[in-house]
Design a binder for these strands. Structure first.
Lengths: 239, 239
DNA sequence: ACTCCCTCGTTAACAGCGTTACGTCAGCGA
DNA sequence: TCGCTGACGTAACGCTGTTAACGAGGGAGT
């Protein structure tokens, strides 16, 4: 048995394979992650992967866990202690989740969009931390709906938001969509409504935007500029 | 050119291949949809698929369009005329979407969860009908947020909800999750808030549910029964 | 110290996948 | 009737995930 002094211990080899697969996934997409390519990139033989991970899905799971671990350890790890405001904790967790999805598009699409197969360990781990955060809301008496319902709603909203953002070109992404979705869910979930913004002004503005293209007496440039400003005003996060 | 009297016209062959692929997808999962299997099931040779669909993705797209078309034609086609209440129309469209996703799990997971590839024609078609419905809300002065923002929110919520429901066992699905998510999004989107239910009662009940497992002096069966009743009460749709 | 056994790395192969090149034959236009 | 275009069927290519078989190497037992 390789004690410690081998050129590369079993864990080292494992880590090297995971690193190679991660790099391949990030730089060349999911289709480039093939057992042979990973083995060659890691400097091992193909069957080694099967001895260490059992399966290609096992490799993917290990990659997901590794990327998630290095991501959370790369963050400042603040506010993880259960000290702060439960709502603020959920918010920061949500932001981290969205940011993670946008930072690792290939990986996220790979693990979050499994058909009817069993969810990946990374997915259930993420669900667990989300469950803890929702649990804190419940024990604080802040929830208006069933705890399980709240969990599913936050999870669905987050997953859907990330997939929607990933599905559109980088420069067209509505980065405030995440905040808006979280606000929507929180408003329906929390007992204490977190202050909804004004209504009449925005409604009128939105209605006006729909008739803008038919407005006579304006140049196209003027109309485009007005549309852009309207969009910016309506998209602006209300403090 | 095959006029009409051939044993099978080009369109017939096409339809047969699509039907075979659809059946294979529904009955044996996405992995069973292989060019050879489809060709054999349809009674044609493998290259025929490439002559008619160009690609395996083309086949999948054709299957998606066919299933969607037969689904909407199978529905009673009610309320599609732009007559009714815009909000009610959005609701019925949402319900149809969720029902479609739950009825065709394999297909939905296949087309809704593409990584960074271009979205399928079926997806953009669905987005277009959703866009029209949201547009009607905007022109009626009912939107509180940007039209595009509203579109993305409804789409994200629907997609996330369906994927969440598909990811859990059939008998554990919270079928009211769809309604709850739509209500959440609508509350954040519409200028006219659609009546939020009571707050204090539910908040107390949810809090109580979290301490239920630690409640002394009760049998496990009693606790389980109480938990079930609480869950049902909190999950019950508020009229 | 020698031998045996057991574990591991390596090679090669298998079955299947998406996809395509090529010879052949039918049916249409001239 | 001749020529041609276009579809058909076969067979193959390169690739995938996965595994069986073989040979070498080192630790354990006597």
């Amino acid at each position: 048995m390789a004690t410690t002094q081998d050129t590369a211990s079993r864990d080292d080899i494992r880590a090297g394979i995971v690193a190679a697969a991660t790099q391949l996934l990030r730089e060349n997409g999911a289709n480039a992650v093939t057992t042979r390519a990973v083995a060659q990139a890691a400097g091992v033989q193909a069957p080694t992967i099967y001895r260490l991970f059992g399966d290609k899905d096992g490799l993917i799971d290990a990659v997901a866990e590794h990327v998630m671990a290095s991501y959370v350890s790369g963050k400042s790890a603040a506010a993880d202690v259960t000290a702060g405001d439960p709502v603020a904790d959920l918010r920061s967790g949500w932001r981290a989740h969205v940011e993670f999805g946008l930072t690792n598009p290939e990986l996220y699409a790979l693990i979050a969009a499994r058909g009817s197969r069993a969810p990946s360990p990374a997915t259930v781990a993420g669900l667990d931390v989300l469950r803890r955060r929702v649990r804190r809301l419940a024990t604080a008496g802040l929830l208006r709906v069933d705890e399980q319902r709240a969990l599913l709603m936050v999870h669905s909203a987050g997953n859907g938001t990330i997939l929607t953002l990933l599905g559109m070109p980088t420069d067209q992404r509505d980065l405030a969509l995440g905040e808006a979705m979280l606000d929507a869910v929180l408003t329906s979930i929390l007992a204490t409504t977190p202050a909804t913004p004004d209504t009449r002004t925005n409604a009128v503005a939105v209605t006006f935007a729909t008739v803008l293209p038919d407005l006579p007496g304006l140049t196209d440039a003027e109309r485009a500029l007005m549309a852009e400003w309207l969009h910016r005003s309506l998209t602006h996060p209300t403090p």
